[in-house]
Design a protein around this nucleic acid. Structure first.
Length: 276
DNA sequence: CTGCAGGCCCTTA
DNA sequence: TAAGGGCCTGCA
């Protein structure tokens, strides 16, 4: 009873989206992409350029996935805007990652996931989150589940020192001390301040939460990758103010280009040498 | 065995 | 406001 909905997009590349570091659960198996989100498991088959089959009904697509993949926003225009800027690096990055979209993820899942991500590596983050969900395709637990877990549970999930952060923040959410709806009503900077009140959410994690969980596209998370780009390409100084509401999207292009673009060569050499 | 990975907190000055 | 040490854990 598989129903594949044939779709054609512009500026949509599921691999780029999956590898752009904004989510930890999308994966590919036997040529099929699996997207566990909002309690469902979407399967996606890549056909030709920009052509994809989604295993869902048109109703489900319109109701859930159109929004999740941010398909209402014209990313072609954003790439174009960056192409018209004076920033040579950003131009290259945007053209390289032009299939990326900023997912509109569930705030709760985003908060927990990005607390876990701090001082951590991607394979381990993915494994940890899979373990918390109880399987690669299993939905991320609801708050009603999460609040049952004690500190020891989070330690056993392998969170290390992040266990207390997660445990305390879930408690704060349960007690409505941290209201998941509040950031939606605030301006970007106020939402940032709001989230940073909570132990375990610093500047980088708060920006990730705002960008991926609340779609504040002006949020510009600075992680080690972005800082490395700023050091090498911008002499250590990069203001994102002029990018305004596309700063977060630009950041995504930069991150993806740094990880998978041509600049990667130097690092590859290093890895090879280490192995010899 | 050390070093380190998509930071944060806390303490100092 | 900035700088520096410590931190869980798994893996090279």
């Amino acid at each position: 009873m598989e129903t594949w909905l044939k779709l054609k997009f512009s500026n949509f590349n599921i691999r780029q989206i999956a590898e752009s570091g904004q989510c930890f659960r999308i994966y590919e198996e036997d040529g099929i992409w699996r997207v566990p989100a909002f309690g469902r498991l979407l399967k996606i088959r890549e056909m030709n350029d920009d052509e994809y089959d989604f295993e869902c009904t048109p109703e489900e697509f319109n109701k859930i996935w159109k929004k999740y993949f941010d398909l209402e926003l014209d990313y072609g225009e954003i790439v174009e805007r960056l192409n018209n800027s004076n920033d040579a690096y950003l131009k290259k990055a945007a053209n390289f990652g032009k299939g990326i979209r900023i997912l509109r993820q569930d705030p709760l899942e985003t908060i927990i996931s990005f607390i876990i991500s701090q001082r951590n590596n991607i394979p381990r983050i993915r494994n940890t989150i899979t373990k918390i969900c109880g399987g690669k395709d299993a939905p991320f637990p609801e708050l009603s589940e999460l609040e049952k877990y004690d500190l020891d549970f989070w330690r056993k999930m392998g969170l290390g020192y992040r266990a207390e952060y997660v445990y305390e923040i879930i408690k704060s959410i349960s007690e409505k001390l941290l209201d998941l709806e509040t950031p939606k009503d605030l301006k970007y900077l106020d939402a940032l301040t709001y989230l940073k009140q909570f132990k375990g959410i610093g500047d980088k994690v708060a920006n990730c939460i705002l960008l991926y969980g609340y779609h504040f596209t002006q949020a510009f998370p600075r992680d080690v990758w972005i800082n490395r780009i700023i050091d090498r390409q911008y002499n250590g100084i990069f203001y994102n103010d002029h990018l305004d509401d596309i700063a977060g999207i630009a950041q995504q292009y930069m991150f993806f280009y740094e990880r998978y673009g041509v600049e990667k060569k130097q690092q590859r050499v290093k890895i090879v040498l280490t192995k010899i």
